[in-house]
Design a protein around this nucleic acid. Structure first.
Lengths: 319, 319
DNA sequence: CACATATATGCTCATTGTGAGCATAACAAG
DNA sequence: CTTGTTATGCTCACAATGAGCATATATGTG
């Protein structure tokens, strides 16, 4: 078989949030049930797809049965050998990755929603710092810093560690998700950073950070999407793509917390979105679920984009 | 000649700031001196370039003689027919665009620094609103809004106009540069949005917004870079890539103003960068140039990235 | 029905950040 | 030494933010 030198693939990170968990749509290749799950993807059809994102929508529909609404280009990955088949004369694979947001639907067979904190467990700080960090990551980072030969190198490593995973006293930045993934990869703490040899145990006992791996570099792509989305919600009102028309402020808050991986101060959060003009009451009230005072329902106020330069639900603040 | 279906091209928007003007490096194709200037670019070498940005650096060096330092991927452009040759059976051209920052150097022959406000004149608000906006753009926008058929459509157009070009009372957001370019393109106010037929006059007398055009969609790519850079300087200390080791606060301020296309309040700007820990005094003093008290020299404080989550020179503020 | 429990919602207060402007300092040129 | 020019210091009003107390309105229980 003659191989073309280059192949262009469109990949989608499709995100929905249900039951307080952000989820990513994954597909299992039918060809090989043994293989790891991956992102919905497919080759660009040069003659059919007028634009890249149309091609993407087409593929997603075909593979998962889902029509995506909000779509934004993420990044183009093109390192050599990111597709192992390239070593056997396969083409250089270029992946143009997209981020898409949907309200969760049932996907067609073969596709499934994967909680993204199962993929990147160290990113969920809603219930305090995940144990992985203290038990596996920090020690590994410390060994790595200690192993630096020059002082120059040591301080560079210490800086990188502090910036990505924060210092002891805090300063965790949710947006640095990609940099964290890359450091873990560099430290060889991930399934995919190890060779195909050593079979690893997912409980982390052999020094591998737990978290479901994916095919190729798809977990890296998910980390890219996570970082981008966390950043974006702070200055653009994209969260509402993930919510129904009418919602309670608590629903909005838990959604933001789920994405950010951090909790916020309830009263201040309300103040932020209400007085910031992001939402307006519908006049309706949610039926109280369980106990407690029933919450008013709100809707997104589209006009906010006309009034304020960068409307979003501030992330950097700990709230 | 047999055409390959897809061609992957790397394009660079290389930015330097000299004499208070941001400039973009452009090359003039040697093959056809009649042709418009374009961005330095070249095909990805599948077997040589291990990563995309290495390929980019190689091409830039070969075409302009310049070694770029800071590089970041911008966007991948892949609309059908963005290369006109595609209509004659040429390949679909995919451009992976990068943003690079350098301290200005003399480029080799064939390359030249082009002031970016000559390319996008409506983006420079340092000396008040550019005349183009009042004389050509606003009237055209108003005609467009008026020409809407339904009320729904009219209000959507009005919103888009308000968000991109601001309302009468201000609210211009420097970061929306790409959205502005796209609106102008949509309104057919740009050279490249008109067919190859109508020869246009660059003074705008025939309704075309003045500003040097470039080959293909390269001006759009520059607008993308402008928007990205303006956003980035607000939360990452990238400006220092454009400055020498030691600099005065005025130099830093004029640089930021040049990029943002807006002026800031001098004393507040100093407070921001000094108390924000972005810079520290070197102890040296600049030789006073002309008149006035000589300024202290400062250097970038790298530690700031360790201390604050998002260090930058705040843009949204009018300063 | 009087509780306990669970949210929702209102409000205060200290602290910090931001926009604007006045005042003074340190140089060059005449 | 006076004027022009830029650098630098400082104040003040006001907005935004982080934290917490208090009250309102539901459900479910004896």
């Amino acid at each position: 078989m003659v191989s073309v030198p280059i192949e262009v693939v469109l990949e989608a990170v499709i995100v929905a949030v249900t039951q307080d968990e952000p989820r990513v749509l994954t597909v299992r290749p039918a060809t090989d049930p043994e293989e790891l799950p991956g992102l919905p993807s497919g080759a660009l059809d040069v003659t059919q797809d007028r634009t890249l994102d149309r091609g993407l929508r087409r593929w997603v529909r075909e593979q998962t049965g889902i029509d995506v609404g909000y779509v934004e280009q993420l990044y183009t990955f093109g390192d050599r050998f990111r597709s192992p088949s390239e070593r056997q004369g396969g083409p250089r694979v270029l992946s143009i990755a997209y981020l898409a947001l949907v309200r969760e639907e049932r996907p067609s067979a073969g596709a499934a929603w994967q909680p993204w904190y199962d993929l990147l467990p160290w990113e969920d700080h809603r219930h305090g710092e995940p144990q992985v960090i203290g038990r596996i990551i920090r020690p590994a980072i410390d060994r790595w810093i200690g192993a630096a030969v020059t002082n120059e190198e040591r301080s560079q490593r210490a800086e990188r560690a502090a910036v990505t995973f924060g210092t002891e006293d805090g300063a965790w930045d949710p947006v640095r998700a990609l940099e964290r993934y890359e450091l873990l990869y560099h430290l060889d703490l991930l399934e995919e950073s190890r060779g195909p040899t050593a079979p690893t145990q997912l409980d982390g006992t052999d020094g591998v950070v737990p978290g479901h791996p994916m095919v190729l570099d798809h977990r890296r792509i998910v980390a890219t999407a996570l970082a981008r989305l966390r950043g974006k919600i702070t200055y653009r009102p994209v969260v509402f793509e993930l919510l129904p028309e009418a919602f309670t402020l608590l629903a909005l808050q838990t959604l933001v917390e789920a994405l950010a991986g951090e909790v916020r101060h309830k009263q201040n959060f309300r103040r932020l979105v209400e007085r910031g003009g992001l939402v307006e009451p519908t006049g309706q009230t949610a039926r109280s679920s369980g106990g407690g005072r029933p919450a008013k329902l709100y809707r997104f106020r589209r006009d906010v984009v006309r009034e304020r330069p960068r409307p979003g639900v501030g992330l950097p603040a700990r709230g």
